[in-house]
Design a protein around this nucleic acid. Structure first.
Length: 260
DNA sequence: GATGACCTGTGA
DNA sequence: TCACAGGTCATC
């Protein structure tokens, strides 16, 4: 489950290794992977001859600017970026880490012989050209307290659903949301708008801290709650049996004692 | 806002 | 053999 952290790792790899390179071919073995009306033919025509100039990210969306169009790369839940056949980041959870060549869904081939590829066994990722970045809310890594309040302060959705709404805040997925709310001591099922000022400040601090800390540890799956995220798991903070529910349509683990 | 479909590898 | 993982989108 690549979330914002994994997207940032991939962006960083692209920035270090795949910029300033000229695209001579675009491999699209799986046309289904192209979204929003993009076709293999159009992708080739738009990108051949272009040079990569910058790697950006908004939430989980990786953006590769060229001197022509901007390429939008989404990792879905099992996608990985490879530059010259080297993968970004640690092995993913819930996803195969083998290197089956048939899982490469999209690749840019460079004039120097190297490549930038997206490998995705589950085919839930996507490639677009010139994506509408404003469909996404502010990036979770740089979220201000005012932006957090604006994003969830008047939402009647469950707190967790509000946090994962990419149009409001971009980059928080299922595991990060559980870790953040567990650390902040907030019940995922609470109505988002019910947080008072103190809780909102605590949530903001926790989002920032979790993103920094788990990035340093190596991924969304390195949270303190992760090991306990199993049937019968106990809260690492107070030993209470965790409850497993569906909140906002996703499997959710939380501590009934200290998350309120 | 909630639900189910999409897709397929993994592990029980 | 089958439930489950889950980011996003269409539909209710």
């Amino acid at each position: 489950m690549p979330e914002g952290i994994e997207a940032e790792t991939a962006r960083s790899l692209i920035e270090r290794r795949a910029l300033g390179r000229k695209i001579v071919a675009v491999d699209v073995p799986d046309a289904w992977f192209l979204k929003r009306g993009l076709t293999p033919r159009r992708a080739r025509r738009a990108l051949q001859g272009c040079t990569t100039v910058e790697a950006r990210r908004r939430g989980k969306l990786i953006l590769v600017d060229t001197d022509g169009p901007t390429i939008g790369l989404h990792l879905g839940m099992s996608g990985r970026i490879l530059v010259d056949d080297e993968a970004a980041g640690d092995p993913l959870l819930y996803a195969s880490n083998k290197a089956n060549p048939k899982w490469v869904r999209f690749a840019l081939r460079f004039a120097d012989g190297g490549s930038l590829a997206l490998r995705d066994p589950r085919r839930l990722g996507a490639v677009t050209l010139d994506p509408d970045e404003d469909r996404l809310g502010p990036d979770a890594f740089a979220l201000t307290p005012a932006q957090l309040l604006d994003a969830i302060g008047s939402s009647t959705a469950p707190l967790k659903a509000a946090l994962m709404n990419q149009g409001k805040i971009a980059g928080i997925g299922n595991l990060l949301a559980d870790e953040i709310l567990w650390r902040a001591g907030l019940d995922p099922a609470r109505e988002a708008a019910s947080l008072d000022d103190t809780e909102m400040r605590r949530l903001h601090r926790t989002i920032a801290k979790v993103l920094v800390e788990l990035s340093a540890r190596g991924g969304s799956h390195t949270g303190d709650l992760m090991a306990a995220r199993v049937p019968g798991g106990l809260c690492p903070k107070d030993g209470t049996p965790l409850i497993r529910r569906t909140v906002g349509g996703r499997t959710t683990f939380s501590c009934p004692k200290h998350q309120r």
